[in-house]
Amino acid sequence: MAVAGILYFLAQVLILKNLVLFGVAFCFLYLMFIILLPMEVKTIPSLLISFVLGLGVDMFYDTMGIHTSALLAVGFVRSRWLRMLVSSGTFDEDMQPTVVNMGLQWFLSYSLPLVLIHHVVFFYVESLGTGLFFDSLQKIIASVIFVTIMSIIVQLLFYRRRRGI
């Protein structure tokens, strides 16, 4: 798990930092590390991991806590959202909620709200309520679509299906 976090972090700060489509779609793929944590990870560990990862990204982006605050919002909501989507006993708790393990429809219903929360917090904190509502809304929609598509591609390329015991 730690290796995956380091890989997401390095990919974000070294490769994806300058990847912006059409000036509006930003690729914050590091967010997927928090979303793809095993289902057994509870809120407090998720918040700690979110804080460390967000702070590291903030250091490289020079954004003074914006990535951290957005990632903490996702880390806070994640386990509650999982509890609403997964009935107890349906899946193994140590399973990762990936497209490969759970299916595309379930993954989209799980990840899209979390990606949306991240991007709403990020872009509205970034604009500081300066009347850039429609600019921020455009960035949010484009970035949510971009990150979701990229995360599905990454999962299909690099994640393996968990086999039954």
Rank of each mutant, 00 (worst) to 15 (best):
A70C: 06
L31N: 03
V20D: 00
P38M: 09
S50M: 05
G65K: 10
L55V: 08
L36P: 00
P38T: 08
F26R: 03
P38G: 06
G56R: 01
G23N: 10
I15T: 11
Y61H: 11
L71V: 12
P45W: 09
K17I: 09
A70F: 08
I35R: 02
M39S: 12
L47I: 07
C27Y: 12
L48K: 03
L19M: 12
E40H: 14
T63P: 01
N18E: 14
F33P: 07
D62P: 00
V20S: 00
L21Y: 15
F22S: 07
I15D: 12
L55Q: 03
P45G: 05
V20I: 15
L31W: 03
F51R: 00
T43K: 15
M64Q: 13
L55P: 01
I44D: 03
A11K: 01
A11S: 13
K17V: 05
N18R: 12
D58A: 05
G56D: 01
L36C: 13
L29I: 15
I66T: 11
M32A: 14
L14R: 11
M59H: 11
M32G: 09
A11N: 10
E40S: 12
F60M: 14
C27W: 13
D62Q: 13
G56Y: 07
I34P: 07
F9C: 05
V52S: 11
V41G: 03
L21D: 02
L10A: 13
I15P: 09
L10R: 01
L53D: 02
I66M: 11
L31E: 02
I49P: 04
S50R: 01
G65D: 10
L53R: 02
N18L: 09
L47K: 06
L19H: 07
Q12V: 05
F28E: 02
S69T: 13
S50D: 04
I15R: 10
V41K: 12
M64P: 00
L29E: 06
L21F: 15
S69P: 00
T43L: 15
L14G: 13
A70L: 07
S69E: 08
F26P: 00
L37E: 02
F51V: 06
T68I: 11
A11V: 14
Y30D: 03
N18K: 11
M59E: 02
F22L: 12
M64L: 15
S50P: 08
F26S: 02
V24D: 01
I15K: 09
A25H: 06
L10I: 13
L48E: 03
L31V: 10
C27K: 01
H67V: 03
V13P: 03
I49H: 04
L47W: 09
I44G: 04
A25I: 11
L71W: 02
T43Y: 02
F22E: 05
F22W: 15
A70Q: 09
L72K: 06
L72P: 05
S69A: 14
I66R: 11
M32C: 13
L19C: 08
I15Y: 14
G23D: 10
L21N: 01
V24T: 14
V24Y: 14
C27L: 15
G65H: 12
I15A: 14
A25V: 10
L31C: 09
I49Y: 04
G65W: 14
M64H: 14
F60W: 12
G23E: 10
I34A: 07
T63N: 05
P45Q: 08
G65A: 08
P45C: 04
I35L: 13
Q12N: 08
F22M: 08
H67S: 09
A11E: 04
S50Q: 03
M32R: 00
V20M: 06
P45I: 00
